[in-house]
Design a protein around this nucleic acid. Structure first.
Length: 910
RNA sequence: GCCCGAGUGGCGGAAUUGGUAGACGCGAUGGACUCAAAAUCCAUUGUCCGUUAAACGACGUGCCGGUUCGAGCCCGGCCCCGGGCACCA
């Protein structure tokens, strides 16, 4: 029987599905392990060979953990709400639910061919009402909660109401609260709720007709579609993520994530410890205190002007009558610019004098107040003190508008640029003179606080998440407007299902739900916005723990068993989006006692991208003649992408190329050595570059086991690397060779003979390697170790059960189909999935001799064999004894013997 | 501009973290089998020098320098590539 991967793979895929082999129960005595993939958005293009990389890695880990005796939860689902399906609906009129269901079916069939050990009984889809009921439920909880700084946790809003009505809270006295109208009470509570409605400057994307969160915008363009984004003041639902800034930051320390990813989150949270200082200002005779934020109070003696953000609400009050015209014109101009323009023009300095003056609280000096877009309204207080000598932005501004530059650090040269470094000795700075900068920062902070001029303040760059989208294909808000007051829908009304509509495009500035019929609750209008994409993906990992529970997001027992995700695999592109929102969402549910862990993802692995390898042909300018890569320097050519299916080993199939496109049917070729050699480059895998490789095709030609092994063999998981179908023959050959240890055509070769020490050594080496490498996600070297072991065993013609049976178990996480087939051929009734690994580890530990190479001054001389348990001293003794007998040592005297345990011995001689 | 990560054969990448650099695979070259092809198997494959040849020796991990018996790995200074953030005071 030859290795026929097609029949083997379909046979066992059917068997696993029929027997629910991968179904997992929360009711187990075994230790649990939760392995999760970031669930995909089912796009119309289907999967390419890069998508399953992370899934294969996590599947291997899940299978490996099962072999080690863990009860493994390894689920899969779909992030099924989202913009592309809706954009498609707008173009074609097809309902997003229909196209989404088609795409899900396509994804499922592609995934099934690769042989994953997902427990599909727990599948979730975010667009399923039974699922989004819990997204809406969490929103209601956030609407019904506030962040209590005393408890440093979210609490039910009722506790705040109690506080307000008895003692008052912050600016609101109990009298004021009790006398307030319903509308006023709603407004007060709104400024404390975790999910709240507020008017802020938002990222408005005209092209998509909706607002976007900060992480959905890059370089002033929407990530989906690349449309320009502008800043607009709008009333929107928001999540008070900023209340969790400190916890999101400190929580990172306990997580096993890569440093680079943690660093990205730290930067995004952007903690900055500084000081708020009050400057009195004067404008047309009026006095107004203005608070500024700075991280460098020590430079306060170098302040030569102040700057306000154009959007700051202080601008009208701090504009003198005679400057009003210029200021209005400037503010109007700034507002007109798109976000992208403001970003690309950061080098050009703009600004206008307000006509007002501030008083430096330390020197009493009178300084001008300017307005400039380089100060942001949304950060700090929207006002700064400018120290041009020691801040490059202030410096550029001062130079442009000819404002004084006052150096306050001894010996610094500010003639050409500012001196931003936090080092040196202070001067021109009153009581700070002579201090080191670091010392001065603390001294100045203390001084400002003692004199009552300001206080220490920590700021974060992390903003609240804008949570409304003016779109159709998302979760409806469980909110209705009772006499204009936003009111929570009763929990018993959930899920609030998405109404049917016919036309999906937003019209007249109204979201699509405005056109839904009877979109009301008890006669009151329901909220017309929908939730953003990240709503459904923020807590899906809880749902898998208990996916059929219709009474809770997750039942207490299931939650206490599975707790949190032990291993999460996905791309870095979610670093500042999904991975922040999920942590926030999780911490919120934790505060209210609905879940038992406050961090969702213990360990995180970021798989790299698999890039495409594109091929090119070179057309000689103005002709239809193509020149081979090696000869193209002699001609003026244009590089043209050619479909990689027409190319093998970079050699073009000329006839297939002619047939590819009508315009090439009469193409002529200049060959080298009788062949047309194509150029190549590593690029993103995309249809337009004709370099997409579909996993279905690989499964057809080589089988899923080969695909799995090859994707892992390609290189380290976390690294981006190009797909190159050429190399796949190597791993395919490996599987065929493996098969031939069991079968010679129809002859069954496996015997019960006792294994030789050499055979056992090969096996034990592999077990050791696999143990070590899988836990470190170094799968490429594990695959190599398999190949080495197989080469050794093949040479020994080893077809012994004692060796092959553990080998099948070891291989099963990587190549489950062939392993399952051979496992049953070895006479086992149960799936290899239920085989257990540990008994073979004992054998590995027993095999313990080490070969040491012995070098003299770094030169290899001889080897000695020592037991693994030998101490360095014992090893040294053996070497010295050996050295005395070796006659070539001659007159040399031994200075010392260096023993590296398990590795090498170097004898230093003179 | 700031913060991460990396640089090793023709290619993807190994190197047990300071211990025989180039494992494993691809590609390439030669050979066996075959009428032929596919498949399979065997050998060679970092560079250079020398001898008919081998053994052997020299050089070699982006560049320059340092520490060490020993450096791809550690330290100092550059050069390039990839990623993230970007007027955050």
């Amino acid at each position: 029987m030859d290795y026929d991967f097609k029949s083997v793979e379909s046979k066992w895929q059917e068997y696993w599905a029929k027997n629910h082999t991968y179904r997992v129960s929360s009711d187990s005595k075994a230790p649990k392990f939760y392995v999760l993939d970031m669930f995909p958005y089912p796009s119309g293009a289907g999967l390419h060979v890069g998508h399953p990389l992370g899934y294969i890695a996590s599947d291997i880990f899940a299978r490996y953990k099962r072999l080690k005796g863990f009860n493994v939860l390894h689920p899969m689902g779909y992030d099924a709400f989202g913009l592309p399906a809706e954009q498609y609906a707008i173009q074609t009129g097809q309902h997003p639910a229909v196209t989404t269901a088609q795409n899900v079916a396509r994804y499922r069939s592609q995934l099934d061919r690769i042989g994953f050990s997902f427990d599909w009984d727990r599948e979730v889809q975010t667009c399923d009402p039974a699922y989004y009921k819990w997204t809406q439920w969490a929103f209601l909880k956030m609407f019904g909660s506030w962040y209590d700084p005393k408890a440093d946790a979210a609490r039910p809003i009722e506790e705040l109401v109690e506080l307000l009505s008895t003692k008052g809270y912050e600016d609101v006295t109990a009298e004021q609260w009790n006398a307030a109208t319903e509308q006023e009470k709603s407004d007060i509570l709104m400024s404390y709720r975790i999910a709240y409605q507020g008017e802020t400057s938002v990222n408005w994307c005209e092209g998509l007709g909706t607002v976007l969160a900060n992480d959905e915008v890059k370089d002033g363009l929407s990530i989906r579609g690349g449309y320009p984004v502008e800043q607009k003041k709008m009333k929107q639902w928001q999540l008070r993520v900023s209340a969790y800034a400190e916890r999101l930051l400190s929580g990172l320390e306990s997580l096993e994530w890569t440093d680079s990813l943690k660093e990205m989150q730290r930067n995004w949270i952007g903690k900055s410890e500084g000081t708020e200082v009050v400057f009195n200002t004067e404008c047309d005779g009026r006095i107004l205190p203005v608070t500024i934020f700075t991280t460098r109070v020590d430079t306060i003696f170098g302040v030569s002007f102040m700057v306000l953000a154009p959007e700051s609400e202080l601008v009208p009050q701090l504009t003198s009558a005679d400057r009003k015209e210029q200021v209005d014109a400037y503010v109007k101009e700034v507002r007109k610019k798109t976000e992208r323009e403001r970003m690309t023009e950061t080098k050009t300095v703009t600004g206008v004098f307000s006509g007002a003056y501030g008083i430096n609280p330390l020197t009493g000096e009178r300084i001008p107040i300017w307005i400039s877009e380089y100060v942001l309204a949304g950060y700090g207080t929207g006002a700064i003190m400018a120290v041009p000598a020691h801040d490059s932005r202030d410096y550029a501004f001062a130079r442009k508008f000819d404002l004084p530059v006052i150096p306050i650090i001894e010996g610094c040269d500010v003639s050409g640029q500012s001196f931003d470094a936090k080092e040196g000795i202070m001067c021109n700075s009153g009581f700070l003179n002579g201090m080191d900068v670091k010392q001065a920062i603390e001294a100045a902070k203390d001084y400002v606080e003692q004199k009552g001029l300001g206080r220490r303040k920590t700021n974060y760059r992390l903003r609240d998440a804008i949570f409304s989208r003016q779109r159709y294909w998302g979760e409806p808000f469980p909110i209705y407007y009772k006499d204009g007051i936003p009111t929570a829908l009763p929990e018993s009304e959930l899920p609030l299902t998405l109404p049917q509509i016919k036309e999906f495009k937003a019209q007249g500035g109204e979201p699509p739900l405005a056109r839904a019929e009877n979109w009301t609750y008890n006669g009151y209008p329901l909220e017309k916005n929908t939730m953003p994409g990240f709503a459904g993906s923020s807590a899906y990992y809880f749902r898998y723990m208990d996916s059929h529970n219709d009474r809770a997001l997750v039942g207490r027992e299931a939650n206490e068993y599975w707790r949190s995700v032990d291993l999460y695999v996905g791309g870095t592109e979610h670093a500042t989006g999904h991975l922040i929102y999920s942590r926030f969402w999780n911490k919120f549910l934790f505060d209210l006692g609905y879940v038992c862990e406050d961090e969702p993802f213990r360990k995180l692995i970021n798989q790299g991208m698999i890039q495409g390898r594109s091929n090119f042909v070179y057309r000689i300018a103005g002709t239809n003649t193509f020149v081979s890569n090696g000869l193209r320097k002699n001609y003026q050519t244009t590089e043209i992408h050619v479909d990689i299916s027409l190319v093998h080993n970079d050699k073009l199939d000329v006839e297939a190329f002619k047939a590819w496109r009508p315009e090439y049917s009469d193409a002529e070729f200049i060959l080298e050595n009788g062949e047309y050699v194509c150029g190549w480059a590593v690029e993103k895998m995309s249809k337009s570059m004709f370099n997409v490789v579909n996993p279905d095709d690989i499964c057809d030609r080589y089988g899923a086991d080969t695909l799995r092994l090859y994707e892992m063999f390609l290189g380290p998981i976390e690294q981006s690397k190009p797909w190159d179908t050429k190399g796949i023959d190597g791993v395919n050959r490996f599987l065929k060779k493996f098969w031939r240890l069991f079968y010679d055509r129809d002859k069954w070769l496996v015997t019960d003979e006792k294994a030789t020490p050499a055979e056992l050594k090969s096996l034990h080496k592999l077990i050791g390697k696999e143990q070590q490498d899988i836990e470190n996600f170094s799968y490429n070297t594990t695959v190599s170790a398999f190949m080495i072991a197989l080469n050794e065993l093949g040479e020994m013609n080893c077809s012994k059960r004692e060796i092959l049976e553990p080998l099948v178990i070891l291989l099963s996480p990587f190549a489950p189909h062939i392993s399952e087939e051979l496992w049953h051929a070895l006479g086992h009734e149960e799936s290899v999935n239920f085989a257990r690994f540990p008994e073979y580890i004992a054998a590995y530990a027993a095999d313990d001799s080490v070969t040491y190479p012995v070098q003299f001054n770094g030169k290899m001389r001889f080897t000695i064999e020592m037991p693994k348990s030998a101490s360095p001293a014992e090893v040294e003794q053996t070497v010295r004894a050996h050295e005395l007998t070796a006659k070539w040592v001659g007159e040399m005297s031994v200075l010392k013997v260096i023993v590296v345990p398990g590795r090498i011995i170097n004898v230093v001689v003179k």
